[in-house]
């Protein structure tokens, strides 16, 4: 019933078969396991998005409640420890997979013509991923978070000439405060994810449009 009537009706209107063939049935060269890291990263990103949305149900980005709300997630909410644990470890793992993915592309020279834009968007995706790690690290508002952000923003502040402006802009003032926490939270859940999703769209479109590169031969 579903297969005989409903699916063809939907397919004719939505082009599901075309999407399936284009995205999943495309031709690929014979490659190895290093080529799975992009998909692994995408999977981790989706995982971070889902667990992150879940955490935002209970987390409060305010200096006097952030720590307590996370304490509540860890001890008071059913499976809170699991959701936060996945988000915590997934973040670390994602930085690792993104980085190794980048090394693979670099050493196989897969960034060359015609994939320069795929590479460029990938570089920005790498930086955005680090930005997610940096902003997310402050949110628990514990000692480690506070001092790591103090150090991190001070490093940014050591840039010549405009350093002080960057530091004040990151912190939302000259000191680390509730303003810092609020803007890091905003960056962590809205700005950076929006940029990442947009760039993933371009990145994947190019992967599908251009296909993936094969492993270079000895004389190439």
């Amino acid at each position: 019933m579903i297969n005989n009537r409903v699916f063809p009706w939907l397919d004719e209107r939505l082009g599901l078969t075309t999407i399936y063939k284009t995205v999943l049935d495309r031709m690929v060269p014979k490659v190895n396991w290093w080529f799975t890291l992009g998909s692994a990263t995408l999977f981790l990103f989706v995982m971070q998005a889902v667990t992150g949305i879940m955490l935002s149900v209970y987390y409060v980005p305010s200096p006097d409640k952030a720590y307590d709300s996370i304490e509540y997630i860890m001890t008071g909410v059913a499976f809170g420890w699991l959701i936060r644990g996945i988000h915590h470890w997934g973040a670390t793992l994602m930085v690792i997979t993104v980085f190794i993915h980048m090394l693979r592309v670099f050493f196989y020279a897969a960034y060359k013509y015609p994939r320069e834009i795929t590479w460029t968007t990938g570089v920005f995706l790498f930086l955005l991923t680090l930005g997610m790690g940096f902003t997310g690290y402050l949110l628990p508002w514990n000692q480690k978070a506070y001092w790591a952000t103090t150090v991190g923003t001070s490093i940014a502040g050591s840039v010549p000439v405009i350093g002080d402006f960057i530091l004040r802009d990151l912190r939302g003032g000259s000191d680390l405060s509730g303003v810092t926490l609020a803007r890091f939270f905003s960056a962590h859940i809205w700005m950076l994810p929006a940029a990442i999703i947009a760039l993933i769209g371009v990145h994947l479109y190019l992967v599908i449009r251009l296909g993936i590169s094969s492993i270079p031969k000895e004389n190439e």
Binding site: V50, V57, A78, F79, L82, I83
Partner: peptide, 8 residues
């Protein structure tokens, strides 16, 4: 777990 987390 996600449902349990939300209705907790």
């Amino acid at each position: 777990p996600i449902i349990g987390y939300l209705v907790s």
